Simulated scan of single mutants.
Amino acid sequence: MTADQLRSLIAAGLPCDHLEVSGDGRHWAAVIVSPAFEGRRAVQRHQLVYATLGQRIHTDEVHALSMKTYTPAEWRAAGQA
């Protein structure tokens, strides 16, 4: 799994206004900005991302994924837009 492949999987399952993925091939970090996160708690947001990855999250393809998830409004308020 490459960062581009992981980015593509997430983007295919979630509408993303911004998406950054970095990692070493097993341990990953992602910054995800999506309108799909509106009204959802952090755990629910992470579950949405895990759902896009399906079984890959339970294998060595994606051993660990650290996420920072934002709504577009939260992202703008953080001065990132």
Rank of each mutant, 00 (worst) to 15 (best):
M1W: 06
M1I: 12
M1C: 08
M1S: 15
M1T: 13
T2C: 09
T2E: 12
T2D: 12
A3K: 14
D4F: 11
D4H: 15
D4V: 14
L6A: 05
R7C: 07
S8T: 11
L9M: 12
L9H: 09
L9A: 14
I10T: 08
A11G: 12
A11E: 15
A12L: 08
G13Y: 09
G13C: 11
L14Q: 04
L14Y: 04
C16W: 09
D17E: 13
D17L: 12
H18K: 06
H18Y: 13
E20A: 13
E20W: 07
E20I: 06
V21Y: 10
V21C: 11
S22T: 13
G23D: 10
D24G: 10
G25F: 06
R26P: 06
R26H: 11
R26F: 10
H27A: 12
W28S: 10
A29S: 13
A29M: 12
A30P: 05
A30C: 09
V31G: 07
V31W: 03
I32H: 02
I32G: 05
V33W: 02
S34F: 01
P35N: 07
P35K: 00
A36N: 01
F37H: 00
F37Y: 02
E38K: 01
E38W: 02
G39K: 02
G39F: 07
G39C: 09
G39E: 07
R40K: 15
R40F: 00
R41S: 15
R41T: 13
R41C: 11
R41P: 08
R41H: 10
A42W: 06
A42M: 12
V43F: 05
H46I: 06
H46Q: 15
L48I: 06
L48E: 10
L48V: 08
L48Q: 08
V49R: 01
V49F: 00
V49M: 00
Y50W: 03
Y50E: 14
Y50R: 07
A51G: 05
T52Q: 09
T52C: 15
G54W: 03
G54Y: 03
G54H: 05
G54N: 05
G54F: 04
Q55H: 13
R56T: 10
I57E: 03
H58I: 08
H58C: 08
H58V: 12
T59G: 12
D60N: 15
E61N: 12
E61G: 07
H63M: 09
H63A: 12
L65C: 04
K68P: 03
T69S: 11
Y70D: 01
Y70T: 03
T71M: 05
P72Q: 08
A73M: 06
E74Y: 00
W75D: 01
W75V: 02
W75Y: 08
W75Q: 01
R76K: 14
A78M: 04
G79Y: 03
G79W: 00
Q80K: 14
Q80A: 11
Q80H: 15
